[in-house]
Simulated assay, not measured.
Amino acid sequence: MADKLSKYRSKRDASRTPEPVPQTPPEPQGGDAFVIQEHHARSLHWDLRLEHDGVLASWAVPKGLPDDPGANHLAVHTEDHPMEYLTFHGEIPQGEYGGGTMTIWDQGTYELEKWSDREVKVVLHGSRAGGRFALFQTDGKNWMIHRMDPPAHDPLPDLSPMIPTEHARPPRDPTAYAYEFAWGGRRLLVPIEGGRTTAAREHPWLRPLAESFGSRTALLDGELTTLSGAEVLVFYDLLYDDGHSLVNRPYTVRRAALEALNLSTAHWQTAPSWPGQAHPVRQAAKDQGLPGVVAKRLDSPYEPGESTAWLFIPS
């Protein structure tokens, strides 16, 4: 019988990588375990591995498992891996095959519905990944993965920004609002999915932001502005987070979820917000030469287009 791990073994030097490199051929056995590893290698991807005939059949999935049955994801069929890889995580040295950080994203068991050379159908039972999936070959090593059951999460919304209505003075009930600086920049909605964002096409420096989210899907609302001579993306709203739309949730809920992300680097940061402090924030905006402040109703949902729930108050 052919050694199913010969290709795996040929790509690795056991003296240079912490990966398991068994020296004997695997023994055929039945089993139903799976693991998904998040792999920060040359490019971020997820490795799906299914136990089959004593090895782990493996696919590299650049965007992770699809949530939507209408959107198939690329799944590159890679070499079989040893069973010990079910629990492997760690740092593969740079310069070695697959060099980078590997963590276990999910693990569990699966039900097998079909297994052939060109198609595999399984039902995954994990703590994060669940549902019916089909893997099917297209050409060469290229396969696709398709979700067969309904979406597990809310779809990522396609929205236009919420625009404040200009108002000459602060609202009559200042305690019903939070106050933020009006930055005078350019609005930018940033969708993040599968560790990538389409916003990076125009702003390549946003790629590390998207990678930092891993498999977490999000939609951020912010503004490109200049601070201390450098372009910075200031975030002030979170519209979708980890499978759930926040559009209909009140501002206070969205704001708390945004702050929990701890977005703070030299290139992007979370905008400060001060509930109930209309006059001090307006004066601070004037002192810093900013156009004004935006008053945001604490109980307001996110309303695309112009809305009276957000008020732009000039300095």
Score class of each variant (00 low, 15 high):
S6C: 09
S10I: 12
A14V: 14
A14E: 14
A14T: 06
S15G: 03
R16A: 15
R16I: 05
V21E: 07
P22G: 14
P22M: 15
Q23P: 00
T24L: 14
P25L: 10
P25W: 02
P25R: 02
P28H: 06
Q29H: 05
G31L: 11
H39I: 04
W46A: 09
D47I: 14
L48N: 05
R49C: 08
E51K: 04
H52E: 12
D53R: 14
V61F: 01
V61I: 15
P62M: 08
K63S: 13
P66E: 11
D68K: 01
D68C: 02
G70R: 13
G70H: 12
H73Y: 05
L74H: 09
V76D: 10
D80T: 10
H81T: 07
Y85R: 09
Y85C: 13
P93L: 10
P93G: 10
Q94Y: 10
Y97N: 13
G100S: 09
T103R: 12
E111L: 07
L112C: 10
L112E: 15
E113I: 00
S116C: 03
S116N: 03
R118D: 15
V122D: 08
V123S: 11
L124W: 02
R128I: 11
F133C: 11
F133R: 06
A134K: 07
Q137D: 02
D139N: 08
K141G: 02
M144N: 11
H146P: 01
H153K: 11
P155A: 13
L156H: 01
D158N: 06
P164I: 12
E166M: 12
H167S: 15
R169G: 04
A176K: 12
A178L: 05
Y179I: 03
E180N: 00
W183Y: 09
R186S: 11
L189T: 09
G195R: 08
T197W: 04
A199F: 04
W205G: 13
L206K: 04
P208E: 10
L209T: 03
A210G: 06
S212L: 03
F213A: 06
G214V: 07
S215C: 02
T217Y: 00
T217M: 08
A218E: 04
G222L: 10
G222W: 08
L227E: 15
G229I: 09
A230W: 03
A230T: 13
E231A: 11
L233I: 13
L233R: 02
L238Q: 02
L246P: 12
N248I: 02
R254M: 07
R254E: 09
L258H: 01
E259T: 08
T265C: 04
T270V: 15
T270Y: 04
S273Q: 08
S273F: 01
R282V: 01
Q283Y: 00
A284S: 13
K286C: 06
G289Q: 09
G289F: 03
L290P: 03
L290C: 10
V293T: 13
K296G: 05
R297H: 13
D299K: 05
E303K: 10
P304L: 07
P304F: 06
G305S: 01
F312K: 11
I313Q: 04
